[in-house]
Design a protein around this nucleic acid. Structure first.
Lengths: 138, 138
DNA sequence: TTACTTGCAAACGTTTTGCACGATT
DNA sequence: AATCGTGCAAAACGTTTGCAAGTAA
């Protein structure tokens, strides 16, 4: 139960446990789709009808701060969030339903070393993401 | 002179050649930085003082449509544009000045094949992007 | 009881649209 | 002369902030 663990971590960081927060946390923790704030709002309202969209934004902000959730960038937009994975993160995303799968990428270190040498850049971060259609959506 | 070629392509597609368009085209074609619409506006206004921000948006839209320009996604935001490269596109980006370098990435086809087999996804697109600081900005 | 959290309303920044005027062809 | 392009103003959109009332601790 990921949602419980997230609520625990919120509590550990001095945040209070409320019905509104719980609804948002359960919604994001228990789905494999990348969800926009508005989608989270619509889904979470089924669990907690009085929920406000502002609370969704503020809760996502806290979850991102605690690295429980991460923002996903896609060709169609960059507002979606998914549960964060530990360690390094390469993604496979369905462009129709938003399903997100974490994958083991190639080892890019040799390429990063080569690029650093060639360009003089200090490379801090990289994204490797694949986009397509999942089996259901094809 | 990339700007001339772009103006030619605009003309070929039935678009008119105007001072405002020329200023935007020159600005984006002749820089290696990823620029936001507002940055394009500020730079292009030096060449064509009467320029409106709306025209920047509309011109970028046309350039994107003709695949002369592409949108760049970065951790800090996804509003920037750069001149498009032919063929496949992997990017190295400076997070301070926005300098963008197209690179030859690894051959990802074997990984894509493996992922397709494992997940059943039909993979249509991928992003491989590296972020850091260029030599000047370090 | 205290301090955090909430939803509402308003503010904000970015992007888009409507429109009359101006410019290119 | 006809059509396309322009800048302005206003609208639309997603997101953030201020605030008074409500709630967890």
């Amino acid at each position: 139960m990921i949602a419980n663990s997230w609520m625990g971590q919120l509590k550990d960081h001095g945040y209070r446990l409320t019905g509104a927060r719980n609804a948002v946390v359960e919604t994001v923790a228990d789905t494999k789709q990348a969800l926009t704030p508005l989608e989270v709002f619509d889904l979470a309202r089924r669990k907690y009808a009085a929920l406000g969209l502002v609370t969704v934004y503020r809760t996502l902000e806290k979850l991102e701060e605690l690295n429980l959730v991460q923002r996903v960038h896609q060709p169609a937009g960059c507002q979606a969030f998914i549960a964060a994975s530990k360690g390094h993160q390469h993604l496979l995303l369905c462009q129709s339903c938003g399903q997100a799968i974490y994958i083991d990428g190639d080892d890019l270190d040799p390429l990063i070393d080569k690029l650093s040498r060639q360009t003089g850049f200090r490379i801090d971060e990289h994204w490797l993401q694949f986009f397509g259609l999942c089996m259901n959506c094809q």
